[in-house]
C-alpha cells in the first residue's frame, strides 16, 4: 500500500514535470517571477518571529508594505500569466502586448504607492 502510494506520487510528479516542460518559455519566466515574489514575502514573514519576538516596537507599517509589495507583484504576475496563456480562451481577444502594457502600468502604480509608504 505504502509502496504504491510512493509510486503514485512519483508518477504524478513525473507527469506534472513532463507536461510542465511543454509550457511556453514566457509563462515559465512568469512562474519564476511569482516564485521569487512569494519567497521574498516568506523571508520577511520570518523576520517577525526571528528578529523581534513579541517586541512592541516592531515597525508594523513597514512590514506590511514589504509583504504587500511582494503579494502585489505576485498577483499582478499571475494576472499577466492568465492573460497571455494561449490555452486560455477567455482572453483570446486580448493581445499579449496589451496585457503586458496593463501589467507594466499596474506595477508602476503599485511601486509608486510602496515608495510613498516607505518613508
Amino acid at each position: 500500500m505504502a509502496r504504491s502510494t510512493t509510486k503514485d506520487a512519483q508518477a504524478l510528479f513525473n507527469t506534472l514535470r513532463s507536461s510542465y516542460a511543454a509550457t511556453p518559455t514566457n509563462l515559465k519566466i512568469i512562474d519564476l517571477y511569482v516564485i521569487f515574489a512569494i519567497f521574498t514575502a516568506l523571508i520577511q514573514d520570518q523576520g517577525i518571529g526571528g528578529l523581534y519576538g513579541n517586541s512592541w516596537i516592531f515597525p508594523i507599517q513597514l512590514f506590511s508594505i514589504g509583504v504587500l509589495s511582494c503579494v502585489g507583484t505576485a498577483v499582478l504576475a499571475v494576472c499577466l500569466r492568465i492573460q497571455v496563456n494561449k490555452e486560455n480562451k477567455e482572453f483570446k481577444d486580448l493581445s499579449p502586448e496589451r496585457a503586458f502594457a496593463d501589467f507594466v502600468l499596474c506595477n508602476l502604480v503599485l511601486h509608486l504607492v510602496i515608495m510613498n509608504f516607505l518613508g
Binding site: I29, F36, I43, L62, I65, V67, T73, A77, H111, L118
Partner: peptide, 27 residues
C-alpha cells in the same frame, strides 16, 4: 530595524525591471 522590509520592497522593484527585460527579449 526595518531594513529587511526596505530590502524586500526594493528587490521586487528590481525584479520587476529584470523580469520585464527577460520577458520582452527572450528568444
Amino acid at each position: 530595524v526595518a531594513f529587511p522590509y526596505y530590502g524586500g520592497s526594493f528587490s521586487t522593484m528590481a525584479a520587476f525591471f529584470i523580469f520585464s527585460i527577460l520577458y520582452l527579449y527572450h528568444k
